[in-house]
């Protein structure tokens, strides 16, 4: 049980860390329509949607 908790904590913190680091890295591109609109309607991919919302914001 203990190793399971330790490993889970490790991967969770790894993911949170990389996610925050990546989010704080600025994008080198100007905002552009990133993915086909259709890919969002095809599966409502959450990451693709938030990407589009982000680009639409500015």
């Amino acid at each position: 049980m203990v190793p399971a908790i330790v490993v889970t904590m490790l991967v969770v913190s790894l993911f949170f860390g990389t996610y925050i680091m990546n989010k704080r890295t600025p994008e080198p591109l100007e905002a552009e329509e990133v993915v086909d609109k259709e890919s969002c309607t095809a599966c409502m991919n959450y990451s693709c949607r938030y990407k589009i919302e982000e680009t639409r914001g500015d």
């Binding site: 790894l14 990389t18 890295t25």
Partner: peptide
Amino acid sequence: LVIASLVQLVEMFIKK
């Protein structure tokens, strides 16, 4: 979580 972290790292690397 490992795959998601990998994607984040790759994206960050490419951005930089």
